[in-house]
């Protein structure tokens, strides 16, 4: 088997043309997904069945099915419903881009809300009792005590999730989006050199992973400054 370095050198800039889409998918679904996750978390821990059950179902369904299936259902399935075609969301759902963002966001929200719930459960009850004894309301205890501690506890798992999400953006290429993966697939189809192209692409993803890992490492260090002696 021959390994053509010139092909690698040529294809990397081409694939990098898709990095914008990869990053957009990542950032949009990360930010919107995290906001959504907070609402789902609040529903999940509300102790009210009519809020808790929908949240649990949401989490179960979107964590329990392959994200590729979710993408396909949204992209191929939704247009068959008239009410979706007539809704205000149609301009977004008509585009593969919108479908990919929606699927990634929902999936990510399900995971992140569980990560945050782990953080909330990890907060020592003693701190909350101290807050209660000082007269803080339940809401104040959540905002000023539980949330900051839970967020710090969640960072390692959250950082893993963001890396997973970044890799999941490659699935958007299955519905014709030209992210880095989409471009790589067209190049492979053209030159029939899967090794060179996919290995170069893997290296690009590894570099992105490295950046994400380190960014969260710094964040965690900063947020843990009160723990170091």
């Amino acid at each position: 088997m021959s390994f053509e370095f010139s092909l690698i050198i040529d294809s990397i800039p081409k694939m990098l043309a898709g990095i914008g889409i990869t990053l957009e998918l990542l950032l949009l679904s990360m930010v919107i997904g995290t906001i959504l996750a907070i609402f789902i978390l609040l529903m999940r821990i509300s102790n009210r069945w009519y809020l808790c059950w929908p949240a649990m179902s949401f989490i179960y369904i979107f964590r329990g099915t392959p994200i590729l299936i979710q993408i396909f259902i949204i992209y191929y399935g939704f247009p068959q419903f008239e009410f979706i075609r007539e809704s205000i969301f149609w301009p977004m759902l008509r585009e593969p881009y919108g479908c990919a963002v929606l699927a990634l966001t929902i999936n990510n929200a399900a995971y992140v809300s569980e990560i945050f719930r782990g953080g909330v459960n990890g907060v020592d009850r003693g701190y909350l009792e101290a807050g209660a004894a000082l007269g803080l309301s339940i809401r104040q205890r959540f905002i000023y005590i539980t949330a900051p501690i839970a967020i710090r506890l969640s960072i390692p798992a959250y950082s893993n999730d963001v890396i997973g999400l970044m890799k999941a953006t490659a699935l958007a290429s299955t519905i014709t989006l030209l992210d880095m993966m989409g471009i790589a697939r067209t190049i492979v189809a053209e030159y029939y050199a899967p090794y060179e192209i996919f290995i170069s692409l893997a290296i690009i993803y590894l570099i992105m992973t490295w950046i994400i890992q380190n960014a969260f490492g710094l964040l965690e260090k900063r947020m843990s400054r009160h723990i170091r002696q």
Binding site: D124, G126, Y127, E129, A130, G131, A132, A133, L134, G135, I145, P148, I149, R152, H226, I227
Partner: peptide, 16 residues
């Protein structure tokens, strides 16, 4: 609770 202070065995200072 506003008028009653409490001190715990394990201090329970807010760590953050």
């Amino acid at each position: 609770r506003r008028e009653v202070g409490m001190v715990f065995q394990s201090f329970n200072l807010f760590p953050h």
